[in-house]
């Protein structure tokens, strides 16, 4: 009999390979040249940064391989040296090798950028999700707390936390994470509040989806887009905040340079040698751009409606 309700006449019983949002997103991501390029740059930077720290001698692997100098040995005679075979990017005011300092700085700045964003994601995302999902008094409580956090000047709070934990590499991470989650919490709460009202969430509840699964399978994927964008913009912000802290004397202490410290230091001698600012500046800009491309690529990849 003709199947007038439009049943596909020919049924092909090959079970198609089941794909899902994440595998499809990966396929879509790979098609995005800018995003893939950005990811490649980030991976290269991470490799370079690891090489600068391992083995744990000044300059790490790259110094051992004679590709760079080492970031701490001073050579005052050679201050502000031009690029040469020995110092591919020249030297700083104390005659320290610039390239090795930038690579060492990468290890610090990238770690700060990424780890702080991960902290923010968990704290801000968690608080925002809880407030949005549970609503009612939970929402009220969490949002009043968020407002209070928001009311304090950021840098002051960071100072308080760093002072409380004692200045160290890790205390800066935690301080930054503890201060900068507020914006994300508000964003996630707003997202969750609007998604929670969608019929598809109701439909998921109706089919017996348990709360945790509802969050993981529906609320998280549908609120991820703007979160990713916020986080990628947060990475350079964290890098610069660390620099500001160094400037105030509570960041990463010289002789171990971070990019922020290098730029701050470079300002002093910007007329004597602008390269002191330009090279770390390029490093920060490249990082920021790469993360932005990756972030945009991720956001688009996670939206099945995007036509690449």
């Amino acid at each position: 009999m003709a199947t007038a309700i439009g049943i596909a006449q020919q049924v092909d019983w090959d079970v198609p390979e089941q794909t899902g949002l994440w595998s499809d997103a990966w396929v879509r991501f790979r098609r995005n040249r800018l995003a893939v390029g950005g990811l490649a740059v980030i991976i290269v930077m991470i490799v370079l940064a690891i090489g600068a720290r391992l083995p744990a001698t000044p300059g790490g692997l790259w110094h051992i391989l004679h590709i760079t100098g080492d970031p701490v040995s001073q050579d005052v005679v050679n201050s502000y040296a031009l690029p040469s075979l020995q110092h591919p990017l020249g030297t700083d005011i104390l005659g320290r090798d610039q390239l090795s300092r930038i690579l060492y700085g990468a290890s610090i700045s990238l770690t700060i950028g990424i780890v702080v964003q991960i902290l923010i994601l968990f704290i801000g995302g968690g608080i925002g999700m809880a407030a949005g999902y549970f609503g009612g008094w939970v929402d009220n409580l969490l949002m009043r707390f968020t407002d209070i956090m928001y009311a304090f000047p950021d840098l002051l709070l960071v100072l308080v936390f760093v002072a409380a934990f004692g200045p160290s590499f890790w205390s800066i991470f935690i301080a930054l994470g503890l201060v900068y989650w507020v914006g994300l919490a508000r964003l996630v709460r707003g997202q969750v509040l609007s998604i929670k009202e969608k019929e598809y969430v109701e439909a998921a509840i109706m089919t017996g989806t348990a709360p945790l699964k509802l969050i993981v399978k529906h609320l998280v994927p549908n609120s991820l887009g703007p979160v990713i964008v916020t986080l990628t913009f947060g990475i350079p912000a964290a890098i610069f905040t660390e620099a500001a802290l160094s400037f105030l004397g509570i960041g990463i202490r010289p002789p171990e340079p971070s990019w922020g410290v290098m730029i701050e230091d470079g300002y002093g001698g910007i007329f004597a040698d602008p390269r002191q600012v330009i090279f770390p500046g390029i490093a920060v800009a490249l990082t920021m751009l790469s993360f932005t491309f990756v972030g945009d690529g991720l956001r688009d990849a996670l939206d099945p409606r995007m036509k690449r």
Binding site: A2, T3, A4, I5, I7
Partner: peptide, 12 residues
């Protein structure tokens, strides 16, 4: 009459 009698795919 046939056009009116559209049916569900009973097989399925």
């Amino acid at each position: 009459a046939a056009a009116k009698a559209s049916a569900l795919s009973l097989d399925a």
